[in-house]
Design a binder for these strands. Sequence first.
DNA 1: GTAATAGTGTCTATGAGACACTATGCG
DNA 2: CGCATAGTGTCTCATAGACACTATTAC
Lengths: 221, 221
Amino acid sequence: MTHDLDEHGKKLTDYPRPSVAVDTAVLTVDDGELCVLLVPGAGGQGRSLPGTFLHEGENLAGAVLRSLAQKAGVTGREPQQMHVFDDPRRDQRGWVLSVAHLDVVPVEKLADALSAGRAELARVGPGPGAHEPLPQLDYDHGAIVAKAVERLRAQYRENPDPWVLLPKPFTLRRLQLLHEAVAGELVRKDTFRRHMERCLVPTGEMSDGGRGRPSRLFRRR
Amino acid sequence: MTHDLDEHGKKLTDYPRPSVAVDTAVLTVDDGELCVLLVPGAGGQGRSLPGTFLHEGENLAGAVLRSLAQKAGVTGREPQQMHVFDDPRRDQRGWVLSVAHLDVVPVEKLADALSAGRAELARVGPGPGAHEPLPQLDYDHGAIVAKAVERLRAQYRENPDPWVLLPKPFTLRRLQLLHEAVAGELVRKDTFRRHMERCLVPTGEMSDGGRGRPSRLFRRR
DNA sequence: GTAATAGTGTCTATGAGACACTATGCG
DNA sequence: CGCATAGTGTCTCATAGACACTATTAC
């Protein structure tokens, strides 16, 4: 592949190149709280987002999927590219660009990695930019988490559960609880219903087993 | 710098790494038309966006500024990072990632490069994704232009001239003509005024020299 | 009946869009 | 005066938020 010569008679690989990493903020909702998945840092010390270096012939999404499969046992996701962090001194091991990604995963898919102690969840505070209880993260991973949360909240403000955290048909109440967890604040039920209803279709089924009046079940449009 | 060893006793630079390029959609408004700046392709054939390879110790914005200074004689800009194009086969010279950027420049700053024939402007069609008269571009640069236009239009929908294409105090009419050029469609004057006024402050000065009633001059808030 | 949850009618404030009108310059 | 451009009053419609009310289940 890398056989073409430039105007100085050199190959592309004759010039210095950075290492390129992907780092992914894997967000989830656990017990009504928005959380981010953390793994042990590179040297076994500190905490990081799951990440890896880009391999030859691989695209960025492929590297993200590989790192998530390896470090969190998660497959079948569709990560979104967010931003390149490019400070030449951001990684003291050398010159490393990091392409930050966002992925959002139902907490059940993380159960194995969590119970095996290979990863842990950290709550993301409710405030718009406040992540009070977030532990200190390696590199610039704190900034990646902040960006991921901001983007996720914007997406959930517009659409009902765009990341399909609720698998089966769901009640409007369940959807609202999920959105409240993501937003980190309570929302009015009537406004919420009317805002989301345009993107939902009732299945005709009803919920059962709870207290109170049964409710209709919906699917995304 | 690159002295740390990983768990296999190897340095980062012992692994294959991609070349990393930056490519920038330089947009401008010329004679009431939204345009993109094109330069000759790498082999002297075809047309490309201005770009370059990232140098050691440089950040992405630095590489963009260097490429714009060299290929378009433009300095003092603030490019925005957009998206990484990562198809391993997108550049037949080898494995090259491109970090696409957006920059927006008053057309006067491009005058030198344009008159010297080192660059040319191509009109970007009015349609939301339609770029009918855009010539075929190298690599995936057509997609970069599409993304840049979409992003620029979103920014101008929200704020008065966020890229400061109008330098001095301006009349609301001038601002409206600029926004119409960016959007590629006409806008209602009364709605436009009331939407933008919250972000403008009158200077107290009045325009002069035109036909009709003189108008107030404004600055961005 | 009460408790609990589901769902809606309606009032109000806000803002965008459309239309038409008034205001101020020049010759 | 006529013409051109600047600027605004106001009507309508759509939407969000808030409040309160009704509906349907279990016990």
